[in-house]
């Protein structure tokens, strides 16, 4: 699976027209995420990082350029079930229980749920929601809902995982825990992962490469390789090498 599960973005442009003005969300953006790699997209609001993700998921279409996910066009890739996604907002269906929300991608892809009941139970345990299987989203806290969304993104055993600020709504402590969990999941699954984030620490901690973007027009300004050994542990957050990389990303964000 490894060679076929990369993400390839080639000279992609996307312009939005709204109320008489146009916004260049992306201009000639190219990015190659090799199979099994972990890439973080970071940048100010409006730099087009979420647009890249939406294009790769087939939720939107590029004006020019091509995007391939696992060697397939985005809409084919998602239909074949090799992708997983978690958005910034949990976007749970209010009438479905935790279990049923996690199973939603299976229903979309037409896969039998019975065959995955063990997987669902395992994921519920993984995100620490044992005992809440039958709870409705309105009975959960914001953090718990977000964890349901994470579990949902993993239910199909995705080869390519898209995460759009999945921990943006969580508190710092929980976020670090989830970062460590996510790294563990990623190392086990070997899924090619594209993470959109606002958090410099999160990006450096998780990614092999941090892609820094700038806005107006949305473009990639710098790619920083993160050569920290894995598995990365919680202590790393206090490591001087880690801080140095953080500073590098921060100055790239400032346009240096």
């Amino acid at each position: 699976m490894s060679t076929a599960s990369g993400i390839r973005v080639e000279t992609v442009s996307r312009v939005f027209a709204a109320r008489g003005t146009t916004v260049e969300a992306l201009r000639d953006v190219s990015l190659d995420c090799p199979a099994g790699s972990f890439t973080a997209l970071i940048g100010p609001s409006g730099c087009g990082k979420s647009t890249i993700l939406r294009l790769a998921l087939g939720l939107d279409r590029a004006d020019t350029g091509t995007i391939e996910v696992g060697g397939l066009a985005p809409s084919d890739a998602t239909k074949s079930g090799i992708t997983g996604v978690a958005f910034q907002d949990a976007a749970l269906l209010p009438w479905r229980s935790v279990e049923d929300n996690i199973a939603l991608p299976l229903d979309v892809l037409g896969r039998p749920r019975a065959a995955h009941s063990a997987k669902i139970a395992e994921l519920i345990a993984l995100v620490g929601l044992k005992g809440f299987e039958n709870a409705l989203p309105s009975e959960l806290s914001g953090g718990m809902r977000q964890r349901v969304a994470i579990a949902r993104s993993l239910v199909t055993d995705p080869q390519v995982l898209f995460l759009d600020e999945p921990f943006g709504a969580l508190d710092q402590i929980l976020r670090k825990q989830m970062n460590i969990e996510l790294q563990r999941i990623w190392m086990e699954s070997q899924a090619t992962t594209l993470l959109v984030t606002h958090g410099i620490d999160e990006a450096v901690f998780l990614a092999d490469r941090v892609v820094v973007m700038q806005s107006r027009p949305g473009r990639i300004s710098k790619i920083i390789d993160i050569d920290l050994p894995r598995p990365r542990r919680a202590e790393l957050f206090a490591d001087p090498a880690f801080h140095k990389l953080e500073a590098e990303v921060a100055s790239a964000l400032d346009g240096h």
Binding site: G58, S75, K79, F87, A91, L93, L104, V108, L109, T156
Partner: peptide, 22 residues
């Protein structure tokens, strides 16, 4: 809610899938 529909579409679900599930 557009976000719920996005989740379905992100797994390759079409109009009818979104209609049925969400």
């Amino acid at each position: 809610d557009a976000r719920s529909v996005d989740v379905v579409r992100a797994y390759g679900g079409g109009k009818w899938k979104a209609l049925w599930l969400v």
